[in-house]
Design a protein around this nucleic acid. Structure first.
Length: 484
RNA sequence: UGAGGUGUAGCGCAGUUUGGUAGCGCGCUUGGUUCGGGACCAAGAGGCCACGAGUUCAAAUCUCGUCACCUCAACCA
């Protein structure tokens, strides 16, 4: 386990703001969340990193089921012809799909794609499953891996293969589909804020940024510590695009054969990247208690002295009984070494227990988020720790929210916008909605349209680019930022 | 694909200018002393110097070629 050069690591991450991607990569690798795979852009998620994903999965799966969805599984290999059925979809995905063309030495009669997303194969099945209005809605979710051959990759943020959850629903009416699209965005937002402690900005994607094949796409955008935006989850209203392409039809109550309306929505292992970059500090990761694989690490001091280890084990049992994920680090290393190791890995709090504490029936608690150190009594320790973890979770969200809110700038000119995004801010501005103006901003500032928030209270009267008057809902309030 | 850079021990690097047969730090192993913020002593293990072909008595080092990776640009639900 203890096989990394930590001193070097601390030096490397000393200046977090000036070289964020490097810091990020180092944190990811040195904390042993992930390893590079043998194929370019693939990653091996190590047990500690996977532990985070398991907690994310559990919490999110509960929420997905609570909103009426069921889990299912569809094949990884999809006939290439399926992908071609929806024009925008194939155009969007074809450049980055991996193809299976041979089995052994024999060429396949039809190429297969390794799924980049499952709308097509699921659409194909839905066309067989759905006949009547009584079959609707269909509310299915899948936990799976997908492959997208991006040109450049970064661990967790953009990898050739990643794990995700994709929901695919079918509804009788357009209204129901739109309601589902917005409901799942709500679920994602609540999850991001209460579980990941990451406040997000939600809204609608521009035409340019929407999902290939969707009628409209909604997003939650999270601000990273360097002021760049990370698209952390999306929900799509697919309209009838796929139901027409895959000939999904149902006989409605009125006796008319209709194409149903569909949605899809997903979040991925990218969320782990979001956690790292939204909460990390100069010592490494900071994980919110809800997703931390270990919530409390107990470090025995002078464990070779009689009674210390026994006391630590007793303490751990008390915490386990209170539902706290607690572990003892009894490795043969100095205490200081262990403190740094577990801080780097982001464990929300640690407990030190040594001969002095045992005498006074207490222990020392050190929080990862505030570095606060205090003596706590061993009496009723389970309840004390549960409350403390709850406070850490809340404090992390609060801290992130303050950071985000203080890095949103309202701008009225492109120059202002450029300066603001260059110094690590999100920009809120008026936009006429034209593709030309959107393209100009990207060209001149390298910032992109992140979303049009639901709250459209105007922050000006003219388009930030072309200066056109915006009135009567002809334009939008939009967020702009550099993005990962 | 455009421009630049790097390949030497598990990780990070020095050595290349001026050719002489392999080094440093961390990590790892063993034994001992330690343990409340990255402990110390001693003894060890570990390398086809990216690959290939030249030049030379002699190549990590010089020449030519190949491959891989990284950064920036471009691309990126």
């Amino acid at each position: 386990m203890a096989d990394k050069n930590n001193q070097q690591f601390v030096k490397e991450i000393a200046d977090i703001k000036s070289d964020f991607p490097q810091w990020y990569t180092d944190v990811v690798l040195k904390t042993q969340l992930v390893d590079y795979g043998p194929v370019k852009g693939t990653m091996v998620i190590r047990p500690y990193g996977y532990g985070i994903w398991e907690n994310i999965q559990r919490e999110l799966d509960n929420r997905i089921k609570a909103t009426g969805h069921e889990n299912a599984y569809f094949p990884m290999l999809i006939p290439y012809s399926f992908l071609m059925k929806e024009a925008e979809h194939v155009e969007g995905f074809a450049p980055e799909v991996a193809l299976v063309t041979h089995i052994g030495n024999e060429e396949l009669p039809e190429k297969l794609v390794v799924r980049p997303t499952s709308e097509t194969i699921i659409g194909n099945m839905y066309s067989k499953w759905i006949q009547s209005w009584r079959d609707l809605p269909v509310m299915i979710n899948q936990w799976a891996n997908v492959v997208r051959w991006e040109k450049t990759t970064r661990p967790f943020l953009r990898t050739s293969e990643f794990l995700w959850q994709e929901g695919h629903t079918v509804h009788a009416t357009e209204e129901e589909a739109q309601a589902e699209t917005l409901k799942m965005l709500d679920v994602y937002q609540e999850f991001a804020e209460n579980v990941l402690a990451i406040p997000v900005i939600v809204g609608k994607k521009s035409e340019k940024e929407k999902f290939a094949g969707a009628k409209s796409t909604y997003t939650m955008e999270a601000m990273m510590l360097d002021g760049k935006s990370l698209q952390s989850g999306t929900t799509h209203n697919l309209g009838q695009n796929f139901s027409r392409a895959f000939e999904i039809q149902f006989l409605d109550k009125d006796g008319v054969l209709k194409h149903p309306y569909q949605t899809s929505w997903g979040v991925s292992t990218r969320l782990i990247g979001a956690l790292i970059m939204a909460h990390g500090d100069e010592r490494g990761l900071v994980l919110p208690p809800m997703v931390a694989p270990k919530q409390i690490i107990i470090i025995p001091i002078a464990a070779f002295k009689g009674g210390v280890l026994e006391k630590a084990q007793e303490l751990r049992q008390l915490l386990l009984a209170s539902g706290v994920r607690a572990e003892i680090d009894n490795r043969d290393q100095s205490p200081g070494w262990k403190f740094n190791e577990w801080e780097m890995k982001g464990v929300p709090a640690r407990i030190e227990i040594g001969p002095r504490d045992i005498e006074s029936d207490s222990c020392i608690l050190v929080r990862r988020d505030t570095h606060e150190k205090k003596v706590i009594s061993l009496n009723n320790i389970g309840a004390t720790i549960v409350a403390e973890l709850k406070d850490i979770q809340a404090n992390m969200l609060e801290k992130s929210r303050k950071f985000r809110d203080s890095h949103i700038v309202i701008c009225e000119t492109v120059d202002e916008l450029k300066q603001a995004v260059d110094s690590g801010n999100f920009v809120k501005a008026m936009w006429c909605g034209s593709r030309e103006c959107e393209a100009k901003i990207k060209e001149q500032t390298s910032a992109t349209t992140r979303c049009m928030p639901f709250d459209q209270t105007p922050v000006g009267t003219k388009c930030i680019v072309c200066g056109k008057e915006i009135k009567n809902c002809e334009g939008y309030v939009a967020y702009f930022a550099k993005a990962y």
